[in-house]
Amino acid sequence: MALSTHYLVKSGDLKKFLDTIKNAQAPDKFTHKFVQDLGFKSTNDRLYIGLLKSLGFLDQNSVPTTRYYNFLDPGQSNQMMIDGIMDAYEDLFAINTKANELSFSDVKGKMKSLTQGSKSDSIYSNMARTFKALTDIVEWKDKVSSTKKNKPTEVEVEEKTESSTQKQQTHHEPETIIKRNRTELHYNIQIHLPATRDTSVYDAIFQSLKKHLLDD
């Protein structure tokens, strides 16, 4: 579980900053100088680095991650932001799956509750304002984080198990029927003919066999 404590003092330029890095060549290391080179020269703009780390766009050494490079692809940018936000504020989404729709005051209150009020009111305001700025620039049509899509829920696992059991039962039942239908009885009848030259005796024996065994 996680709840990012990184925040921006000026969150109004967040979208502009993200659009700028999306259109810039990814650096080997995301430094303060690189932020300045992008045109964000205020000391407050350095806070973007910590925010990008919490979103999983940079590792702890400020090196761009796979998520960062995927973000540069316009077709993946929105989903990468969703993944980053839901990972950075996992605790918040655990409380309310629609945390992105909460008001500023509700977000601030829940953050204060989750961190047991260990920070100042102004910091909570900045944290909540940053969260709202992030969620406002994202299209939430595909809310589920792609990093969690491949994890089956307990219900899915149970349904798969039940389905597998039903398939096994369905598979074996026809086999049982087939085996029953193939059950056959074979009779081995041995006839000891008497030693005689009178053919009428043999004729009578075979006529009797035909009457009682062959004619049904």
Rank of each mutant, 00 (worst) to 15 (best):
V138E: 07
E90N: 08
E139G: 09
K110Y: 10
N96G: 08
M127V: 10
I85G: 00
M127D: 02
T115Q: 13
G117P: 15
R129Q: 15
A133H: 05
V144N: 12
A99T: 04
A99V: 15
T115K: 14
E101R: 07
Y89L: 12
N100E: 04
D91W: 11
Q116R: 13
V144M: 05
E139R: 11
M80H: 02
K110W: 05
M111L: 13
A94Q: 12
N96C: 13
I123T: 10
Q116K: 15
M111T: 07
S125F: 08
D73E: 15
S122I: 05
A99Y: 03
A133R: 12
Q79Y: 05
K108Q: 08
K143G: 02
S146L: 11
S125T: 14
K141A: 03
A88G: 06
F93K: 01
K110F: 00
N100F: 05
T135Y: 10
D106A: 14
P74M: 10
I123P: 07
L102E: 06
V107A: 12
T115E: 02
Q79W: 06
Q116M: 15
D87A: 09
D142F: 11
S103I: 12
K108L: 10
N100K: 03
G109R: 02
D83V: 08
V138T: 03
G109C: 10
D87P: 07
L102K: 12
V138G: 04
G84Y: 11
K119A: 03
F131H: 12
L114I: 15
D73A: 14
G117H: 14
S145R: 00
V138M: 03
T135H: 08
I85R: 06
N78W: 13
S146G: 07
S120N: 14
L102W: 11
M81H: 12
D136S: 15
G117E: 07
D91T: 01
K141L: 04
Q76I: 03
S118C: 05
N126I: 09
T97C: 00
N100R: 04
S118T: 05
E139V: 03
